[in-house]
């Protein structure tokens, strides 16, 4: 598996000062596979994605993308990897100095050197994919609602048609109907265009729809990893509690003392 995997994490550790966030993550994502990462708030899901992207450097462990080691890789190696990836940040992270369409077209114009006119047309098509009309194209990101910003961020992540996609909570803050449009879009990117995806989500309905596999993060480790069809029957009590959303259970979500 690990030879053919698109993304492969081995024993990844990351801490901030005394706070150990990741304590030995092992995870593989195969070609064309869509993996959903679930887990409580603050367990290190976003940190995991940032480690794969090289935005954070793990203290220990190995992260391979397309078989190339990324921990301690040279800048050109990492740039080569990033040229084929797209990332939706949890807070959208739109550039507020640029209008919406230039945000979406950024990777095309700056990364690929595409003509602005052509890039703008593509950007407007991508905006339509996430349910936004051409009238938002010239607006400033700061004047959009949170959910709209999230969708612009998603449009930006997929605009260059990357082969590896990272989505940090794509449906959070979005109404259920638009959420379903987003789910369909992610499915289209992975199943039809063949990209592989790592998606962080709290939304189990979305996870069931977009993921082939689900991995659950708890206390710095992946404690369960399996096909999405098995999440209801798995005998892992942590996973069961998370999926059903019970307050009673083994998960220590700092609620116990309430």
């Amino acid at each position: 598996m690990s030879d053919t995997a698109k993304i492969s994490l081995r024993d990844v550790h990351k801490s901030f000062g005394p706070k150990k966030v990741l304590q030995g993550i092992n995870l593989d994502v195969g070609p064309g596979e869509s993996v959903a990462i679930i887990g409580g708030s603050g367990t290190g899901k976003s940190v995991t994605l940032k480690c794969v992207l090289g935005l954070l450097v793990p203290e220990q462990g190995s992260i391979k993308v397309n078989g190339t080691e990324m921990v301690g890789a040279s800048r050109s190696t990492r740039e080569e990897m990033l040229a084929h990836t797209g990332m939706l940040f949890q807070g959208a992270a739109l550039f507020d100095s640029l209008p919406v369409w230039e945000n979406v077209a950024f990777g095309l114009i700056e990364g690929r050197g595409m003509k602005r006119k052509q890039a703008r047309d593509i950007a407007i098509a991508r905006l339509a994919d996430v349910g936004l009309g051409a009238e938002v194209a010239n607006m400033s990101p700061a004047s959009l609602s949170g959910g709209m910003q999230k969708r612009v961020g998603l449009a930006r992540a997929i605009a260059t048609e990357p082969e590896i996609l990272f989505f940090d909570e794509p449906t959070t803050g979005i109404d259920p109907i638009m959420g379903d449009v987003i789910n369909d879009l992610i499915v289209k990117c992975t199943r039809e265009l063949g990209a592989c995806a790592m998606t962080i989500t709290h939304d189990m309905a979305s996870a069931r729809k977009i993921a082939d596999r689900v991995a659950m993060l708890y206390q710095g480790k992946i404690i369960w990893d399996g096909p999405v069809s098995e999440i209801d029957n798995a005998d892992n009590p942590y996973l069961q509690q998370f999926v059903s959303g019970d307050i009673e259970g083994p998960l220590d979500l700092d609620l116990k003392h309430l």
Partner: peptide, 11 residues
């Protein structure tokens, strides 16, 4: 995280 976003967009 806009600076991080720049990096992921190959800039």
């Amino acid at each position: 995280e806009q600076i991080d976003a720049l990096v992921t967009l190959s800039t």
